[in-house]
Nucleic acid binder design. Structure first.
Lengths: 298, 298
DNA sequence: CTTCTTTATAACTATAAGTTATCAATTCAT
DNA sequence: ATGAATTGATAACTTATAGTTATAAAGAAG
């Protein structure tokens, strides 16, 4: 039993067919027959119940399939770590962040690059769930997110905290106000972004506490879209304060909500079990050191 | 990179030498040189800093070594699970138990065997720590222990609870008493078994609470040895009640300790992630069903 | 009953994993 | 210092195996 056999076996199980699996693996079909035959001989049990018109896993096959998946994933991770190990000093940092920190991160990269010119960075914009998924599969080294999850054993480093503010169109009835209370928002139409599902929950609860359910008319993928919907008078939205500083525009009003104290914490997150080459530790340090300063700049 | 390479690499790292590793792997030394050479070529980095008189892992080598160990362990587990899968209905159950349940378990096996005559059982006597270790490495399917640990994700099923009693030599000053209090044990000499380290701790604390530290003169491996030391007048000991029923002897007295309420819980323990063939589930059921009855028989 | 699809078998080839023999470099003892 | 001993690398060769193509066998579908 080696990885090659497991890969073959796994592919057949996924394809439900020898022929198709052979094509996918870029080998001939008899080669696959052989692999499985010898695997079955080695393990002393049949793995597939096969006929010319149907193929399904036996009980032992089912067990091996589960393990094979784990092994293949593990090997994937090993290759990724070894790539990092090979490229010490000149490698690539993969970073995933929630979209609203696009501007924040470009500053970080500037500072980082001047210190580590040989290291390149690949920054991807991902939703909070994808950040978790990509960290788990070793596809990104670092994430920037506002949702800390205890269920995995990631390490979350809080970078900064910020308030939420209310964003309204230029001609909105709040235009001359600096601050309002939650109850004033009754009968308003809301726009929320999927990304900000954390604020969404807490905000709805806060509304319910003062006696109404906010009507959410629009759901957008990104904060930017939410913002542009607001600017076009389609509703109002609650957004993190830093987002405004990083996306200047005059076509909107910003109002503080006095009795909504909820804050958003932004974290740098990574997998501590994974080998992280020195530049990444560097990046973590820089992030910690400059994060506040940058946000304050608004 | 296949398991063969990883196995070779791992063995060299453990031996600190190509030559010795080659002997251990039953292959020639040049074969090993080749494996490592091609592995290094594949990964694009050197794994060992080698000279004729010293060998040590490089940084990437160190990372790969850690992973290789995990992979090899994982493969070991897969082989063990596949063996179980192959032998459904006629396989072997490996069980580890703390020694004091020897008699208890022999009854369980009798009942189990009459229902599953084709399944053989291998029962090993292990300390509580070894039970954990062997469960982790898939070397035993089931354990019987009195120490439940939250740190791993094993499943512990409480089988029964029992009191601890005081065991004294036949001619001891307590011989005409049915029960005593902890304070009466001041100035006595104690014998403890290593296995029962749970009772040991709680008992010493109970003594300290009433104002003295018990003097422990003997430490034994097994409860049986502790018992025979007691019978020979070398001290007194605190043992689980069931142990007496299962080891009849007239050369000792049994005394209850009125103000020592600590009970011992005995658990059946297993790894829920592991594939457990039907006979093992059967064994679990039987254990649950008959455990109390058997202990009551004393 | 023929045709199509799918897996298994047979015969062969190329690759790579192992072998032995030998070399080169370094340590160690005298 | 120098020869013996130890250790890893290299070369040439062998063997095992993972792949190939061609084809057979079995079952489903028209």
């Amino acid at each position: 039993m080696d990885i090659r056999s497991l890969k073959h076996f796994h592919t057949i199980a996924e394809c439900g067919q020898f022929t198709r699996a052979a094509i996918q693996l870029h080998i001939s079909q008899p080669a696959l027959s052989n692999t499985i035959k010898s695997l079955e001989k080695e393990l002393g049990c049949t793995l597939f119940e096969r006929s010319t018109k149907s193929l399904k896993l036996t009980e032992p096959g089912e067990i091996l399939y589960k393990h094979a998946g784990n092994v293949l994933e593990l090997f994937d991770k090993i290759y990724k770590e070894m790539e990092d190990a090979r490229n010490v000093g000149k490698g690539k940092i993969n970073l995933g962040m929630i979209e609203s920190y696009r501007y924040f991160i470009s500053h970080m990269i500037g500072i980082f690059k001047s210190k580590n010119p040989a290291v390149s960075m690949k920054v991807r914009e991902l939703g909070p769930k994808d950040i978790v998924k990509n960290l788990e599969s070793f596809d990104i080294h670092l994430g920037i997110t506002s949702i800390a999850n205890d269920h995995n054993n990631f390490k979350y480093i809080p970078i900064f905290q910020e308030n939420y503010v209310l964003l309204t169109p230029p001609d909105h009835r709040f235009k001359n106000l600096n601050s309002i209370e939650i109850i004033d928002l009754k009968n308003e139409t809301f726009i929320h972004s999927l990304e900000g599902f954390k604020i969404r929950e807490t905000f709805i609860k806060a509304c319910e506490r003062v006696g109404f359910s906010p009507s959410v008319e629009f759901e957008t993928e990104s904060l930017e879209t939410a913002c542009s919907l607001v600017e076009n008078g389609l509703g109002i939205s609650v957004v993190p304060e830093s987002f405004l500083a990083l996306n200047p525009s005059k076509r909107r009003n910003v109002v503080f909500i006095k009795d909504f104290a909820s804050k958003r914490t932004v974290y740098l997150v990574y997998q501590p079990e994974r080998y992280l080459p020195p530049p990444i530790q560097d990046f973590i340090d820089i992030t910690l050191q400059f994060s506040n300063e940058i946000i304050v700049r608004k």
